[in-house]
Write a protein that binds this DNA or RNA. Structure first.
Lengths: 201, 201, 201, 201
DNA sequence: AATGAATGAGGTTTCATTCAT
DNA sequence: TATGAATGAAACCTCATTCAT
């Protein structure tokens, strides 16, 4: 029974908890993007993260928790990108709005299987409607800024943002499902613009 | 060891396949409404329909097939009610629109666990975007009539209806999730009205 | 509602996979011997092995795989016993032959339900005709040695051994089925001896 | 609801029980030959016999009963053919023996999936070892005649025939499984001839 | 006698989750 | 802290057999 030399195979990688958790989330993103929620089990994620199955539960209470973490990570990253794009003062709110709508639709389409995993399913229901870290929250921040700047009508931010997110999300769904890309985008633009334009409710 | 009551398991009920199928769908509606999609298995449905487990598979290839059937039934019934309400000529399109929006939101809220079962999950993805038998199709018919009557703006019916359904559906979700009922409804009304009003895209 | 005794379900026994697999095979032997292939389900085996049903499929892809494993184990054990008996040089091939024939028939009769399970049914067809690990292979080795020693006629080893196995197997079947033990054994001896004696085909 | 005219579709064929039974057996033969025992369910047989599933149990107590009936039919038909071939007095018993051996092996090989269905599986065990209607019984009759004619050695007919059937059956199995046809046949001939030749047991 | 819907046990499988090591 | 074997609750689905019509 050969004893394993101490240096052989630095397996059993001892990582800082935060780091390990981050690796699991990243692994889940990879697997979910490629295979979707149904082709992705706990074991697939731990395998992709090169750790043991049981280790998963050290970092996530349940599978759904992972999904929430993945979604948070995704949204945070996207929020970061938005922040960078909209760094300076916005001169043309309507052009910016149209641009961001198209970007967000395209972004969702690029998510592949991740889209179903985090925007349908249990992760979807795990957030308060007014959570600023969520996708609706992100939209809400943009809308609020536009309203404050006098560019958009004075809508009720929280519910309106939530519903506009449903529109953007539905748009990606429809396109992914086979609907005509340009037509869906046009309808989406119309809905969002008309909502933020115009007179009082 | 519980003794089986004499009346339990009376006789084998031989039904016409259509009738049996209807009973299974009805039973599923009952169970799903009460318990939601989780906590509801094939056996729960067959038990509620007072038939044997194996019988399920004579009528539905998979669980998802049942969900689709339940949704179709629900939508058909709702469509029937709408048809009756809107039987005569519509004089005030905007009032009717507001009324139907509120009704539809309330209807979804009343669905209980059924809502999750048929509007989230697999049943949701089993329909073409332009299926007239679907909820978006129902909305589409109303919008198309309003457009034809010159009351609504000439929107692109199919994608717009699909997206407006997302709004109505999201509204029910938000309220069910705890958001303020009146605020969500107000925001919903604003989005739908502004979309159907106004100038060109 | 039987209360569960405190000692029942002691602890989770974590075994080396090889060991667990061995236990499952051993449990299957016990259950099959007593109850035969019908009246023995996956669950019976896992219960007898004091493990969980789902664990079965970590070790055997299908039920038939288990049967093959059981048969292999049985044959290997029997082969071991033969090897020990026939360790030294054989002086009287014919007496040894007669002896081994009787032993093999008796052995099969002792198998009880195991006999049906591994020599009829699917396990039977999972082996190449010239597999040395099989019962015919065992017979073949003996016959080949006798031929090499000049004691037996120069028969075609592989097919002849396979067919003689059918005879020995059939003999056990017949006796188990109620035929006269001595008569069947006598007929068996005659067939095998005459086959290995005598001139060219 | 159109009432069905009296002459429309002479379905619900009312057959004499014997006739119906015969049709079921014939249908089973067809289906089993093509698809083997695993691709053949009660429903497949009744469908092939153009009758209702439930009707099956009017004629056969269980599925295994059908298998036995199929086997009996097969053997009876084969026995008939043998009787015709061996109608007159036999002059060369050894040549006839060889001929019949080859025919029987070929016959079994031609059975396709029927072979497994009736010679493996439950039908196999449903016969007394000395049943004259069985394949061993058929062999027994031939051997007995040869013995009576002084051509074959005075073997113990019943067990010997049973065991020789195992040899012939095993030969077909081996060939079907991929063994060399000529070699297996040669070995079979040797075993049978040597058994029936020669001196006392 | 004929029909085919109904029954229900049970084989097969999957996996989130737990826990001994 | 890491590991992966073990657990067990479902889920799926099939089919021989029964029986109301």
């Amino acid at each position: 029974m050969a004893t394993r030399s101490r240096s052989e195979r630095a397996t059993r990688r001892r990582l800082h908890p935060d780091e390990r958790r981050r690796e699991l989330v990243a692994a889940a993103e990879r697997v979910l993007r490629r295979h979707g929620p149904d082709g992705c089990r706990v074991e697939d994620v731990t395998a992709a993260a090169a750790t043991a199955k049981g280790n998963f539960y050290r970092y996530f209470k349940t599978w759904d928790d992972l999904l929430v973490a993945v979604r948070d990570h995704l949204v945070a990253r996207y929020a970061e990108a938005v922040r960078e794009r909209l760094d300076g003062p916005i001169t043309d709110w309507w052009a910016t709005l149209d641009d961001e709508i198209d970007r967000f639709i395209s972004y969702q389409l690029d998510l592949g299987g991740l889209h179903d995993a985090v925007f349908h399913g249990p992760a979807e229901r795990a957030r308060a409607i007014d959570d600023p870290q969520s996708a609706p929250g992100l939209i809400g921040a943009f809308v609020a800024a536009g309203v404050a700047d006098g560019a958009f009508a004075a809508v009720d931010i929280v519910p309106t943002s939530y519903l506009l997110f449903q529109v953007l999300h539905g748009a990606a769904d429809a396109i992914a499902f086979g609907a005509d890309d340009a037509a869906v985008r046009a309808a989406t633009h119309r809905i969002v613009r008309h909502t933020l334009e115009g007179g009082p409710s």
